[in-house]
Write a protein that binds this DNA or RNA. Structure first.
Lengths: 339, 339
DNA sequence: TTGTACGCGTTATCAA
DNA sequence: TTGATAACGCGTACAA
């Protein structure tokens, strides 16, 4: 941050006070239009750029929203960010982006940074490796308006914007059931993360509603990434052939991609030997050798709704704490056995 | 930004001065370890979070880097951001993300915002629609350290980190020439953007080196997005059948994706009727019905190198202005006619 | 080891 | 319409 032109210098140049400069530039009505013009002209000539830092300190407002992203390369998140960015831009807010890299410690760091930078509000999607919610409570105690998006923590007094995870998971599991598969496994996410818990619940509910037995052996934790999906599927494939699942519901598409690789590696076919479905509708899902049946999450919409809610909290004390659920859509392709 | 605990309150709680609190918390050596412990304990108990805004104002340093991204959903950029983020995190900097959405006006806005927020440095990749470079000069005049990444503006005194665009373009065009194609078209980017200019130059050079005639009719501007690629290809396909190109080099993969759609829509086959190659190695490139031959750009590396250089400029006045060129790799798949 | 005074650049407030 | 002063919360420099 190098030495730069200040309002003081503009004022001295014109032999007027700093306040007049400030007023002229911020469009205050109580300023002679002749002096106003002079100020504007001089400011431009001198290359004056108002210091937002000083303004933020004086006004106790940064016009900035902090965003915590668990994994920037998951196609869901760039799309969500685009939604977030569109709204913040037109509302006159700016974005500080932090990346937790699915790591709880880095997430804590990110949150502390955002608190220290006095962002007006925080948008967060929890990291894969979170185990306790203390840090979120700390943020809530600081009274920083916070909205969870996609991966939420309920019951700590923050608004949430997510998709109908349980319903979607149930629906896509039921789709597998319609295909007459009996032995259906689930590659699940960590239970400390909302979407991990809810999608597992939807899977269980589907089995239960259709009188299929639930077996612990058929639930393997994969995490949210491709490599975890590969390892988890490998474990299922190690089961004696008779016990081997006939279909798999992966907690998200990247995990499904990994699982597909594990299946192909054993020389098995999808869906002939094993059917598989995912969740998220990654941009790659439709392009795979066997296009993936999945649940589409409107990422842009999730991001958009989340900031809108957050800005509500920031600008209006009375804004109610809400849980906003966005509908998903099942996208049927071939990996489930259709066509 | 709500009322929050300050160092003053911590000091009053302990009947000591603010400075002692400041010193204790910033790990200054000249402070009794007993008082230090008390301060730390009290700070935690009161939920004190040091105000970075105030600190930034006092120290004239924000420890923040501003990033301008043209299109967050292009797979190149999230990957570049990941590289940027990794370095900034370990170097103790934070990231303000702005999105120009390929729009010159929004880019200008973003730059002004970053200047006003007194970021320590700026990382920028120019928007598709830029026509003049005045705004960049303004930033340079403000003496804000700036590094261009991927899409660069040379000769205005800023460092650049890019890939060997011209060389890569030449190489992949030559690959088409090796396939004995004579009529090779180019879907080009805007010439006001470095990569648009350079990739066109590489294409021209390849033709020239192999004694193929260059025709203006074979260069159609597509921009960097899928829809532009579709439209540009459509134009080429409207040429009388005799003049129709036999192969196409698209300025980037998204444009190539659009072009492929246009080709398929006419009932033509790739590569039998028309061969096509791209540039960037989008994550979808290998998954397409006809996998796309392309040039791989190490996005993570570009991002990483760019911040490293930027941090050099920020922390060391003497840092030389550089143009860092990163090697690319040709990825041969099937859309070119191989296999 | 601890404390006091001042500055960072802006805006709000009150006075002229 | 304009100006002087205080305040925002911290760190530097110097004094005790």
């Amino acid at each position: 941050m190098s030495k730069r032109v200040t309002a003081k210098q503009v004022a001295e140049e014109l032999n007027i006070s700093i306040m007049t400069v400030s007023r002229a530039l911020s469009g205050s009505p109580n300023v002679d239009h002749r002096t106003k013009e002079k100020v504007i002209e001089t400011a431009r000539r001198l290359g004056y750029v108002p210091n937002q830092i000083a303004k933020s300190l004086a006004l106790q407002k940064t016009d900035t929203i902090g965003v915590v992203v668990p994994e920037i390369t998951h196609s869901f998140f760039p799309e969500a960010i685009r939604g977030i960015e569109k709204v913040t831009y037109s509302a006159g807010y700016h974005l500080i982006l932090t990346h937790s890299a699915e790591n709880a410690e880095r997430e804590m760091d990110a949150l502390k940074t955002l608190a220290a930078k006095r962002v007006d509000g925080i948008l967060i999607s929890t990291a894969e490796s979170v185990t306790d919610y203390d840090i979120y409570s700390d943020i809530m105690n600081l009274k920083i308006p916070t909205v969870f998006y996609d991966r939420c923590v309920m019951g700590i007094g923050a608004s949430c914007v997510c998709v109908n995870d349980k319903h979607g998971a149930k629906k896509i599991t039921e789709h597998l059931i319609e295909h007459k598969y009996k032995k259906i496994a689930h590659l699940c996410g960590p239970l400390s993360v909302s979407i991990g818990r809810l999608r597992l619940a939807g899977y269980k509910k589907a089995l239960q509603d259709h009188n299929l037995v639930f077996s612990e052996d058929y639930v393997v934790e994969s995490g949210f990434h491709e490599d975890g999906g590969f390892r988890a599927m490998d474990k299922l494939l190690d089961l004696p052939e008779k016990k081997r699942p006939r279909a798999v519901f992966a907690v998200n598409d990247p995990a499904a991609f990994g699982a597909m690789k594990a299946i192909f590696k054993r020389g098995l076919s999808i869906p002939q030997d094993i059917a598989i479905v995912g969740f998220s509708d990654d941009i790659r899902a439709e392009l795979l050798p066997v296009p993936l049946t999945t649940i589409r999450q409107p990422a842009f919409e999730v991001g958009k709704k989340a900031v809108e809610k957050l800005i509500g909290h920031i600008e209006n004390e009375e804004e109610k704490i809400d849980k906003i659920v966005i509908d998903t859509e099942i996208i049927i392709r071939k990996s489930c056995g259709c066509n």
